[in-house]
Design a binder for these strands. Structure first.
Lengths: 217, 217
DNA sequence: TAGATTGTTAATCGATTAACAATC
DNA sequence: TAGATTGTTAATCGATTAACAATC
């Protein structure tokens, strides 16, 4: 029952943050933590933390709190971090290369398998030991290499075409860095990193801030 | 009155998306658009679009809709995109360089002024015409160059120290790419791009998806 | 004018917080 | 056992959607 209930996206978006703090506690050798202590660290209310966790099961113990190692392991399990993911990047520009090199992914089961490019000068080369293949080989390669995740670091103009090819190749998720909203089939998960949107919303507050500061003069 | 009412962050986060679609319409030479047409494109309800816009003023006209150019200009105004922003990046690693090179910023009034690094091999060099200065010069340089925005592309271990220096140097906003939650004074705006959190929430849906697919076999 | 579409109020829905009984 | 803290229900708060009168 409760296991089948669809969990709200806002809850899912908070899980990686729980994970980060639990990792930190683990590193510090702390072995138990209460929702109140977590609240002080993470900044969510204790009530919200308990509600969030109880979407997935009762991981705590009354009168004691939560076991740090066990809870971390549970959250890894929930997020699906207990396995490997094969990834391919489309676009070997600055951002694509940065993502390819980002050490994060080599650890923790994220494997960058291939980079796809249109620029003939780059095709055939290796970037950080990852082979750069022709954009035209995308569908077959994605399929043959069993790619789970497609990462889009192309221009906004090519992004939808690239997404389509990733989907035809059989990826289960797309991590999109191009500043467009893509259409993908229901069975493909989509996560956007819209950097320009992010900067623009920052600037909203900055411009407000600077005006407020001017007012005080 | 209504101008002073604090506008919810969820609304602000939608504004850049309105901007993107209005830009697109403008490029296509469309000169009027209704909330219903916008709804079909953007995917928010027409009702929500009208509610959002009316937080800032009545930009439409009954029986007609919204003038594309005028509305785009209004949203630029609201977001604070009608001026220049001087930016400095801390961390000249892959991500820092990618952000520095990202052409987006050169256009539209975002100027990357300086990059700060600890690695002595990089200090004094130029990356894409931007000078790389010693991390130790941060506070003074940020102040003297009138930097508005600090961009953090360091490790999570250095991020808080870097944020402190940006704040002491007088930035009004911080764009943080390090996987930590930073403490900054109230008058400094903070926008996080937590790439690992983003990937982890994607993987939640991917792993669910793959399990569901397996079940169907 | 008639038709269209906004601006805005009211109704609904969902997410967060508070409270407390259950229990370790 | 007594104290602490969870799991969970109920209350509140805020955000979204629906409805419609105002008006171009």
């Amino acid at each position: 029952m409760s296991k089948n209930a669809k969990i709200s996206n806002v809850v899912i978006k908070r899980l990686p943050r729980y994970k980060r703090y639990l990792e930190e506690l683990q590193k510090q050798g702390v072995d138990k933590v209460s929702s109140n202590e977590l609240s002080r660290m993470i900044g969510y209310t204790a009530s919200q933390i308990r509600q969030d966790l109880n979407n997935f099961g009762g991981f705590g113990q009354q009168g004691y709190g939560y076991n740090v190692n066990a809870l971390h392991e549970e959250i890894n399990q929930i997020l699906g971090l207990n396995r490997e993911y094969r990834m391919a990047i489309a676009g070997a520009g600055n951002l694509g290369q940065a993502i390819a090199n980002y050490t994060l992914y080599y650890k923790n089961g994220f494997i960058v398998d291939t980079i796809f490019e249109v620029n003939p000068k780059l095709i055939g080369l290796k970037i950080n030991d990852i082979e750069v293949l022709d954009f035209d080989q995308m569908v077959d390669t994605v399929h043959d290499h069993n790619i789970d995740l497609g990462i889009i670091c192309t221009t906004k103009e090519s992004a939808q075409e690239v997404a389509d090819r990733f989907c035809r190749g059989g990826v289960h998720g797309i991590w999109n860095f191009a500043p467009v909203d893509l259409k993908v089939p229901d069975h493909v998960a989509l996560e956007n990193v819209h950097l320009s949107d992010s900067l623009h919303s920052l600037v909203y507050y900055v411009s407000r801030q600077e005006t407020a500061a001017d007012d005080e003069k």
